[in-house]
Each structure stands twice: as C-alpha cells, then as structure tokens.
Design a protein around this nucleic acid. Sequence first.
DNA 1: ATATTTATAGACTAATTAGTCTATATGGAG
DNA 2: CTCCATATAGACTAATTAGTCTATAAATAT
Lengths: 190, 190
Amino acid sequence: MEVNKQEKIQATALRLFVADGFHGTPTAKIASEAGVANGTLFYHYKTKEDLVVALYNKIKDEHAENLQAIINREDFITTKFKNVFLHSVNWALANPDKFYYIQQFNFSPHFAKVSHETLARHTRGYAGFIEEGIRKKLLKQQPVSLIVSMFNGHVYGIYQYLIASDADPTEKEKIINEAYYMLWDMMKYM
Amino acid sequence: MEVNKQEKIQATALRLFVADGFHGTPTAKIASEAGVANGTLFYHYKTKEDLVVALYNKIKDEHAENLQAIINREDFITTKFKNVFLHSVNWALANPDKFYYIQQFNFSPHFAKVSHETLARHTRGYAGFIEEGIRKKLLKQQPVSLIVSMFNGHVYGIYQYLIASDADPTEKEKIINEAYYMLWDMMKYM
DNA sequence: ATATTTATAGACTAATTAGTCTATATGGAG
DNA sequence: CTCCATATAGACTAATTAGTCTATAAATAT
C-alpha cells in the first residue's frame, strides 16, 4: 500500500465536488478517479454524506489549527490580528478548492447544522484575543461574534476581488495589505 | 386559471432548492408541490437547469432594479451609499430564501459563468456613482470593483451575524446602522 | 502458524429521476 | 362556430446512482 487510499479518496472528492457539486458527483466517479473500488469508498465512509462532512471538518480543522498557532504566538494583539487576516487571505488564495468547498458547504442548507457547530467551536478558540483587544480599547466596543462575522465577510470580499483580478503576485500582496488597512480602519477603536 | 402556474413553480422551486439544494430537489417534487403536472413544468422550462438559471436571474434583476432606483434618486452620494447598504441588508433579512439561493448559486461551480456575467452586468449600473464618489474624494482611491467586493463582503458578514443573533427588530436596526458606520470608516477618504 | 481484524475489490440491485410523448383543454382570432 | 396556438396533464422510459453483498487479500495479534 504505497498511497493512503483514504487520502486519495478525499483529494479526488474535493476536486470533483468543487467541479460539479456534492449531488452532481457520483460516488462511482470519485472511486474510479481515485483509483479505488466502489466497495472501498463505502468501507471508509458509510455514506456519501459521511464523506462530504468528513472532508469539510478536515479542511476547517486544519485551517483553524493554523490560525490558533498564530494567535498563540507571543505577539502584540494588533500584530496577531493582522497576521490572522493575512494568513486567512493567503490560505484562501493558495487553496482555492478548499476555500470554495467550504463556502459551498456553508451555504448548503442540508449541512447548516454541521457548519454552524463547527464555526461556533472554532470561534471559541479565537474569542480570547479578540476580547482582549476590545478590553484594551484597541478594537471597537462590539460583540466578538460581530467582529468575527465582519472579519470573515472582509476575507470573503477581498478573495472574490482577487480571484477575478489578473494582478501578479507582488501586486496582489500589495492589495492584500491595503485591504488589511481598510479592515483596520473599520475595526480599530477611535 | 386563477394562479399563474409559472410563478407557482418558481416559488415552489425556490423553497425546495433552499431546503435541499438544486440536485437534491427532483423536478417531480417541484411539480407536485406546486400543484402542476410534470409536463407543465417542462413545458415552461425546457430543462431543470433552465429553471434554476431563470429563477436566479429573476431574483438578481429584481434586487438590482431596486438598487438602481435608489442610485437614481437625487441624493448626495454618501446618502446613496448608505441607502444602498441599508436596502441590501434589509432585503436579505426580509428575503432569506432569496439571499440564500443567490449565495448557493454563486458558489455553484457549474453556474460560475452565469453568476459572473450577471454580477458584471449589474456592477456596470452601480459603477457611475461609486466613480463619482472616488473622484470627489469622498471614497478611498481604490478600484470600483474592489469597493464593490468589499461592500458585498460586508453585507454578507453582517447578514451572517444577524441571522444567528436573536436581537429584536429595533435592536437589529441599530446594529445595521452601526455596521454601516463601520463600513463607512473603512470606505471613506481620509 | 493460525486466527482475527482491517482493507480492498467489483458485480449487482432497488430506487430514483430528468426528460419525452401523447392526449386534452382552454382561450382568442377571424 | 371553427381554427390554431398556448397551456396542462400524467403515464412512460432510459439512464443513473447510492448503497449492498460476497469474496479475497493484507496485516496484526496470539
């Protein structure tokens, strides 16, 4: 067994789900393109839905872990804030499939409960340093969840702009930086 | 014929698509719950995809028309800007199904081309007054499409926050207003 | 070495589903 | 009143698809 079949299945599923959507992708196609048999897929994931959810949680957890590492570093709060933003945007740009998949999942009514719970679970991890920023009057005196929502909205907005633009990498970095200062104009305590 | 069957089909399709997704909703179910026969649905819409796209464009056009009316009013640019934001958020809150459907569609790779073209078409309508705002140094000196993307991101963010919150209508209005001032802090020329 | 668990394969099935086809009905034009 | 186009109905079909079943193979434990 040279390749991990489970990982092959997940990678193939991600690619196909992003191309054709959950329902638009037959399990047989995932299996065949992943180079495994139908039975293997259903051995590892009891149902198709299981696979969809497992893939979502894997991507979200992976991303949340990275953010947590940034937050845990011994930096000044505003530095953390900036780094979390930069990492989020750069991660989305470097992993468009994953970012796309996450959005697709978040807007699938059928999975609303899962995505809501996952978001809530991860937000608890970020809450601490945002609360500190509010307390120290660096951030506007608003609820943590409002700040998180606006933050996510901003990442979403700048991502949409960047994928449609044909700016080269250096230029993109500059745009992301400017987007950060705009975000900060919005968030900072005055 | 007391009710317009086409409208009944669209309304039912919207409800079911939001509940179960495009692929998760059989045409037969749409027809039966709309109280029409299968043949009737396929008489009005040659394919299922036709229905999905027609519904999307109808909702988007309807919304864009409202925004255009606001933009065309003889108001100061900053007033227009605020009104467009307020209307967008309130429209989303008043029509969660439609807003949800739009997002779902926007993140369906299969329809990427359609949604991209529709966005571009509508953006041309908004461009004029944003350009004026930039020229008059009311808005930051950034590309129109960046401003539109961030604007949309902000609407998206505040919507996500508000549907998860249990604030009463009066309180929600207050939150939306604060969200507007935050948006303005971000967008205004300094 | 043997037994047991884990992993893989692929044929098969029962159910579902988009779209077709033919038959009516309804309403307006001449 | 008679045509003809538009609208509606619903049975039917060909294709697709999630999940099952049985058989092995590989790895691990005893």
